[in-house]
């Protein structure tokens, strides 16, 4: 069976939406999930620890060389780019920030695109810069499913708008539609 993956990414105003969706789920998402959000390593909090109590499934910060497993939600660590290797494991990278961001959404998306091809679904949420747009386009080009949060519903529309400008999305969805989509993966 082909390996699948779900990517959820955002920045300003996106993080809380992602968290609320995850918290609203009554059953675990069956495939692996990667969450990439911009956060300052200097204030790296233990969001994962707090969240793991509120969620119905395993959630953790992705470790270097860790094998990607079904049913687990992985967070990109603050201060590092998160990449996926051809053997379906993670690797970390501390090279220059991309779009002023590390972790950068583009970097993770671009690395996942070729490996998961049509078995990848990526959703780009609210955010205050253009990170993620190029990466989303790459996923689309490799046959993956790409959704963006409707900019009209986003707290900061810059990120989804950048993706739409590149025509990187297959569909624009409001928060309820995103919730419904994710629910059928549980």
């Amino acid at each position: 069976m082909a390996r699948k993956i779900l990517l959820l990414a955002g920045s300003a105003g996106g993080f809380s939406v992602i968290l609320n969706i995850l918290k609203s789920l009554e059953r675990p998402i069956l495939i692996p999930v990667i969450v990439i959000v911009h956060r300052n390593p200097k204030y790296a909090s233990s969001i994962e620890d707090t969240l793991s109590k509120a969620l119905v499934q395993k959630i953790k910060t992705a470790d270097d060389k860790e094998a990607i497993e079904d049913g687990t939600i992985y967070f990109a660590p603050a201060g590092y780019h998160l990449l996926v290797e051809p053997d379906y494991s993670f690797s970390l990278d501390i090279s220059e920030p991309v779009q002023y961001s590390r972790p950068s959404i583009d970097v993770t998306f671009e690395s996942v695109a070729e490996i998961y091809k049509e078995n990848c679904t990526a959703i780009l949420f609210s955010g205050a810069n253009q990170d993620g747009a190029q990466g989303l386009l790459m996923i689309k080009r490799y046959g993956g499913k790409t959704f963006v949060q409707d900019p009209a519903t986003a707290e900061v529309p810059i990120m989804p708008e950048a993706a739409i400008q590149l025509d990187a999305q297959e569909r624009i969805l409001n928060i309820q539609e995103i919730k419904d989509y994710i629910k059928q993966l549980t």
Binding site: L83, P86, S91, D93, S95, E110, S111
Partner: peptide, 9 residues
């Protein structure tokens, strides 16, 4: 070298 990072470089 890990491939994903090498590919980026």
């Amino acid at each position: 070298y890990t491939r994903a990072s090498l590919k980026r470089r």
